[in-house]
């Protein structure tokens, strides 16, 4: 792997790490498999890009992007809780609807940000190259979000949210409206995903309506990789593990792409297949382990 590929993987690991942290909230804290992500990532990118091309400060542009993501998540949460639509289906409906909405927001399927001011510009002004500035800025941001998330999940509200995913009956008996918790939690998750989208668009120089395809699977893969390697009991370590999982996942992908087996080598379009296989393996391995152990005993 070249230094350039390594730094690129690091940058992606951190920036998509924000998305992974969002996926962690829905998938692991709320036990709510949320596919809204595939639509809210380009949503964040679209909103931020429109703001930036209209002369907004690139940092400020992230705020409406996050708000839009929050609202998208809330819609999924409301469809699920108030209208009793299965969580997976509710999130797919929002995701599909967002495809049309994202094109409406941009006025076209994609939007270039060339020659626009982006969040990395202040670092470029200091003489840093993309290979240093990207990982640095997004790394600092991701670590800050990790800290914020750990803090939040240990507040009164955060604990109530964790209990909502774990045992809705118990937390209802303790006077918490689980509907509000789910709506707010899925909202928060998608706000982070949209933030990731806003930043990815800026670092790649374009927002594209299709940039979210398969992102949820990458998010799940990262969460699982993190848990497998750093799995720990305390909520703090689990959040850190999710971010590290994201970085390692991107490094593994970069490594796979740099492999050459004779005439064969992986292309970027193979990533989805590799990721899907990775997730299946991670999900199946505990069962396989049990079977192997059971056979060894008999």
């Amino acid at each position: 792997m070249t230094w350039y590929a390594f730094s690129g993987a690091l940058e992606q690991g951190f920036v998509y790490g924000l998305m992974v942290l969002g996926v962690y909230i829905t998938f692991r804290v709320l036990h709510f498999p949320d596919l809204t992500v595939d639509g809210s990532l380009p949503l964040g990118a679209a909103v931020a890009s429109v703001c930036i091309t209209n002369g907004w400060d690139p940092y400020l542009a992230c705020v409406p992007a996050m708000l839009a993501g929050f609202v998208a998540g809330m819609v999924t949460g409301i469809l699920n809780t108030k209208f009793k639509i299965l969580h997976l289906l509710a999130s797919i409906l929002t995701m599909i609807a967002l495809y049309s909405i994202n094109i409406r927001i941009m006025g076209r399927p994609n939007m270039a940000l060339l020659n626009q001011e982006i969040v990395l510009d202040p670092l470029f002004a200091l003489g840093l190259t993309q290979a240093v500035a990207g990982p640095l800025l997004f790394g600092v941001l991701a670590v800050a979000v990790v800290g914020g998330l750990i803090w939040f999940l240990n507040t009164e509200l955060g604990q109530a949210m964790r209990a909502t995913g774990d045992n809705p009956q118990m937390i209802t008996a303790q006077g918490v409206d689980t509907h509000k918790m789910i709506i707010a939690g899925v909202g928060l998750s998608n706000a982070l995903v949209a933030l990731a989208g806003a930043l990815v668009a800026q670092s790649q120089g374009a927002a594209d309506v299709n940039m979210g395809v398969g992102v949820i699977v990458a998010g799940l893969a990262s969460v699982i990789v993190g848990e497998t390697l750093f799995g720990a009991r305390s909520i703090g370590r689990r959040i850190v593990a999710a971010l590290l999982g994201s970085v390692i996942y991107r490094l593994a992908i970069a490594l796979a792409l740099s492999l050459k087996l004779g005439a064969f080598s992986f292309t970027p379009s193979d990533i989805n297949l590799i990721t899907a296989i990775l997730v299946v393996l991670a999900l199946v391995s505990p069962q396989l382990k049990q079977k192997v152990q059971a056979r060894a005993r008999s």
Partner: peptide, 30 residues
């Protein structure tokens, strides 16, 4: 198994119970 949250600690469960019927905010849970 229904009355407690398995993945939370004993003190976190008790803290949740201590706020029953009260507003829950951004103060430290425990």
């Amino acid at each position: 198994l229904k009355g407690t949250s398995a993945s939370l600690s004993i003190e976190e469960n008790l803290a949740l119970a201590m706020r029953r019927g009260k507003m829950r905010g951004f103060a430290a849970g425990v």
